[in-house]
Design a protein around this nucleic acid. Structure first.
Lengths: 223, 223
DNA sequence: ACTCTAGATTTTGGATCCAATCGGTGTCAG
DNA sequence: CTGACACCGATTGGATCCAAAATCTAGAGT
């Protein structure tokens, strides 16, 4: 962690953005878990900033679905109920095929090659945390041709808010389910290369749907 | 009325919330239009507050899809391209039926009566701005049994970000299209009362879809 | 021993002041 | 006359201090 393009501080590398990046890493990386409280002063001191950019950062993260606020009670990492996670997956099931359909016509040979490479890395990978990153990269890459901000930010929110439960899920599932994931990814990748939007939507929807159903059979994820 | 509730529920009467409510009204009411810049100091002075709660409010509104930020360039009301609006409607087409399906089982006679009353008010109404509020109230009421925050806040965002274009659309369409809206609302209302989720999803999807298609035939809305 | 209340501590919300950055304008060189 | 550059006003970002609210703790009363 703690990368964040420090040396060549180019563009809008303002403090609140750096604080947001730090907290984002901490939440998505699992160091901050659902229900954990985030104290402004603690973060401010740790990053050598004042509380103000921390407040701004927390608002940004709220917009990304990574934190929630209550009046004078501060910020927390949202804890989702099993049913809420189920509905979030149903939302993904409906929204992401749309993003894929918007994206596919814009993707060229470069993106196709990059997708193939990422999928290969997923299949060669053994590490759990790495899988979470690579899987996300794969899907986001398939959406990278979709430049509709309201859609992409929503998709990002949905991934963000369920990241912790996805980690818990693959952690207990192990690699027994891996081959299913990979075969589904291959189907999606093939549809993308063929530019068959209908197949892409269908396979992607099935991919998310299967994950949702399997997740619903494992309530221990929500311990 | 319509108070928007912001779906994220972190409301009190603290300053930033009041500022947010003021700006929200201004944007949804049409006084601030897409592309307009919002200067912190101006708002602060007008409301007798300092710039800090204004900054917080702008972040909240950003989370609701009502403003957008750029590094040192300040806040603006987002301007959506025709294609972006089209995609937002496609998103609504997929998400809102889900919200309705989640909500319907929770709605009782009280909500049904209130829905009937609001729909009647829509049919009796003549005013344009009133229609926007009532229409929103009708749909939000049908979703009021859905307590999944990630879903409801997304739906709210989608309505927020297209409010201006909806106004421009009904403004030029006039009452010629009114009877279609009302008959579709009646179909939805009937499905809700019968607790037929499948019919509800179908009619609602069609309602939004028809609006999207008609909107796509009127590019002058985006003048 | 238990509960309810009141004060103390902690934490968030807000105001003011200062620093950094952006936009526009005017000037000078070609 | 035109374009580039530099300066200046305007505007946003950040730090510190103070006020308000919530939580925690300790004590008194039953």
């Amino acid at each position: 962690m703690s990368e964040t393009s420090s040396a060549t501080g180019h563009t809008s590398d303002i403090g609140s953005t750096r604080v947001a990046a730090y907290l984002r890493e901490a939440i998505l990386g699992g160091e901050l878990r659902p229900g954990d409280r985030i104290r402004q002063e603690e973060v401010a001191e740790r990053l050598g900033a004042s509380r103000l950019p921390v407040r701004e950062a927390l608002r940004m993260l709220e917009a990304e679905g990574l934190t929630e606020h209550e009046a004078h009670k501060g910020a927390r990492v949202p804890r989702l109920s099993p049913h809420e996670v189920d509905v979030v997956y149903r939302m993904r099931e409906r929204l992401e095929p749309l993003a894929l359909a918007e994206s596919m016509p814009q993707l060229g040979p470069d993106e196709h090659a990059r997708l193939e490479e990422v999928q290969q890395r997923i299949e060669d990978n053994e590490d759990l945390e790495k899988f979470l990153d690579l899987d996300r990269e794969f899907h986001m890459l398939t959406y990278s041709g979709c430049h509709i901000d309201p859609l992409m930010s929503n998709v990002t929110r949905l991934w963000n808010s369920t990241q912790h439960y996805r980690r818990a899920f693959v952690a207990l599932g192990g690699r027994s389910r891996m081959w299913v994931v990979n075969s589904e990814h291959r189907l999606i990748l093939d549809a993308v290369v063929r530019r068959d939007a209908d197949d892409g939507e269908r396979f992607l929807g099935g991919h998310i749907r299967r994950t949702r159903i399997e997740l619903s059979h494992h309530p221990e994820v929500f311990g």
